[in-house]
Amino acid sequence: MRATLAIASREVGSLLRLPVGWVVIALFTFLSAVIFVNGTLIPGQPATMRYFFASASWMLIPVAPAISMRLLSEELRSGTIEVLRTAPVSDSAVVWGKYLGGVAFLGLMLAPTLALVGVLVVVGDPKPDPGPIITGYIALGLVGMLYLSIGLLASSLTSSQTLAFLGTLMFLALMMVLSSVVPGAGSVPEPLARALVSIGVQARVRDMTKGVIDTGDVAFFLAGSAWFTLLASAALSSRRWR
């Protein structure tokens, strides 16, 4: 566990020492503020962060791959994976450490947006209900965790950060199309359409930003994250045999 935490902490530290980390945080914060000002701070509208959470979950589609693309790809490219593998640490500890590092960075990235909540509390009348705000942040965290785990898998498959980024982005776009566009086509059989809808992320986020926490939704995100992280671990281990 100590090794996993050491890997996670090194990962966060590295992201914060590199321009890419600060660019991602700055860009996400800036876009969040723009969305907040244009979609939430509207006179006469109820004081709710729902629009922000819905938009932020879309923003995570390109942002999460930008965080996850270097997690393992960079180790594979630079050869530091060889040093890491000779340390008394299992492949799964390496992958979970990387994942936790990515999730911690996601938390750091979301933290500045709490200032937007502060603004809403100050200017909103009536004051916003804290319940949907808390569940909204939980939703953003869960979506980010799922996307990061998918990005981690892509990052374990290639030593190119660009490929890892594009691969994750395309996978997330495919997931979105399959879950929201395809089921609407008349020719798709009903059971398949239902299955495709169930892998949709945005509908689950919508429910959670209303203050509704469905254990099924939480389980979907946690199980999905665990599944892709385990796949990344298996992919890393399989490199030993290639």
């Binding site: 590199l18 530091t80 060889e82």
Partner: peptide, 13 residues
């Protein structure tokens, strides 16, 4: 204790 060829390290550390 292992030193691989060309000593790969993390440049930002």
């Amino acid at each position: 204790g292992y030193l691989p060829e060309s000593a790969p390290l993390y440049p930002e550390m």
